[in-house]
Design a protein around this nucleic acid. Structure first.
Lengths: 304, 304
DNA sequence: CGGCCATGTGAGCTTTCCGCACATGACCCG
DNA sequence: CGGGTCATGTGCGGAAAGCTCACATGGCCG
């Protein structure tokens, strides 16, 4: 086995991007990094090669002779690689069943990042709450909420824990004040898809919900959340459903969020080997890890 | 600027090595890493691509269809790059002046690693203790021992600090015992190239050297070290000179090593731009950092 | 001559990568 | 049929690479 001494490949990629675009900043954008990163990579490559690739004053850099030579080979080489990547042919479609609200509020907004990173892959999301049935075929994976025990019956990976808590519009909070008792007397919003949310939360917090409070029920979590954002009352919802709205300031969660025993899991048929489904699962778990931390409470229950 | 979505290049390199060698272990050796590293890289690439590259039971892995396609493109692509690297032409020679003992004991044993990483570069080492004179030409850089102040007159980078201390053969130590007073009465070995070594060390330790002790003087540090290894007495030497012998058990340093104000520095002419010389300096500094930590004392001075 | 634009750089943090040691699993051989 | 061996997979901890952010630099242009 001949031993080939190649310089750092990431440096080559950065240099090639620079050579094609003619500017650090443009290359940085093409690679999705900052200009400083490209600058370092190119510098590191020059050091490694022991040769100058760029010359001239730094506001008007120009490829050196050696740099031109190298770039002339790099571009076709990378093109060759890109053309040979699997998935260059007809794109494969991954079919995933997902809980409706999770899909709308969490998955779809993140999906472009996955698709960008996996060109030649398409993902079709089917919304469903029904128990997962892979036997019908045509479905490669599913996302559900399950307890650890139920999940163990499947080939499952945990995406993220399930934290839930009450959310409302900032305006309604301001009007009511940061007072736990008053907040719990605001109209309660429920979703048909998960009626016990409020009771489960109250039980977990060890508080009793005052009775005689207006309740409104919605067909879906997403309607309920819209209503909450519109200031109609307080909804108890999983953190991933509210995360984007909270970060944008459309909703606030004065009591923070509480962990439930269930988790969001990614399920696959117990048989078969589907690399794209596997990659999607890994990516989901990663995204889940990056976003699993809900904000803490700012209003204490039981405090006056 | 078109945006090309390439998978992790290090994964591609690992996969190509695997495809060429037909085995994880062979590929690992070709890349200078362990088989586990290759295994992970290939696995990561499969995940990223969302496609199987290898199939079959793990004791008889075989390239999949997609894997063959990819490998077929990767090998020429990497060859193309390798051929276009600067330095493919006539190899450049870097001329470096170095202190004799440092060269023999420290630099030369490490040099192959640098040359491996920089094919198309040759390094000629000239041994010299004389003050550095770049004006004569033909010299690209030099390695010397200087104080921070003197070094600031040059274009200099620090390679490593200068620690020195007494060393002797393990046999002689065993015979004498771990007793500071008795050890300091053993014959003292000196080198003409640095006569004040013993006095400087004693002063730094705050001890007085017993008088009336046999002394032997040698023309060079390396003769002195050989004598020490042969059990003729105790030599005070910089850590880098003794490092290899200590690690191999030929020498021991019961008192550890003591820092001096001088350092090993890499000097370059103040003018001119020599990427290979720059790369060599960076590599030296790096090697220096990896080896700068001398062992601690095991015999305390002043203790009975 | 002051502001602007492109690139270089120091500090600190995150991610990737690797080595090590061990696990796994399949084959072989007696 | 059980132990040995060979090739590959994997959890863990630590090292290196890579990145961002913020600021420095240095030349151009108005």
């Amino acid at each position: 086995m001949t031993r080939r001494a190649l310089p750092p490949l990431n440096g080559l990629r950065a240099f090639e991007a620079y050579a094609r675009s003619g500017s650090m900043i443009a290359a940085a954008e093409a690679l999705g990094v900052t200009h400083g990163a490209v600058s370092r990579q190119v510098r590191g490559l020059e050091l490694q090669l022991g040769a100058r690739l760029l010359t001239g004053p730094k506001h008007a850099l120009v490829l050196s002779e050696a740099g031109r030579e190298l770039a002339k080979a790099l571009t076709p080489a990378f093109d060759l690689i890109a053309a040979a990547l699997p998935g260059a042919g007809p794109s494969e479609e991954l079919v995933v069943s997902c809980l409706g609200t999770l899909s709308m509020k969490w998955l779809i907004p993140r999906l472009p990042a996955f698709l960008d990173a996996h060109p030649g892959l398409r993902v079709r999301i089917q919304e469903s709450h029904a128990p997962v049935d892979f036997s019908a075929g045509g479905l490669h994976a599913a996302i559900r909420v399950l307890s650890a025990k139920s999940a163990s019956a499947y080939r499952a990976v945990t995406i993220m824990p399930l934290h839930h808590g009450p959310v409302l519009s900032p305006a309604l909070l301001a009007e009511t004040g940061a007072d736990a008792e008053r907040l719990l007397r605001l109209p309660r919003l429920r979703s048909e898809t998960f009626r016990p949310a409020w009771d489960l939360w109250a039980q977990g917090q060890g508080v009793a919900l005052p009775s005689g409070v207006t309740e409104r029920e919605f067909e879906h979590n997403s309607y309920m959340l819209e209503a909450a954002a519109a200031g109609l009352g307080v909804a108890v919802t999983p953190w991933p459903f509210a995360q984007a709205d909270i970060e944008r300031g459309r909703l606030v969660a004065p009591f923070g969020f509480q962990a439930l025993a269930e988790r969001f899991v990614y399920l696959r048929p117990p048989y078969g080997d589907h690399p794209a489904a596997e990659a999607f699962g890994q990516w989901l778990a990663r995204e889940g890890r990056r976003n699993a931390r809900p904000p803490a409470a700012v209003v204490t229950l039981g405090a006056k």
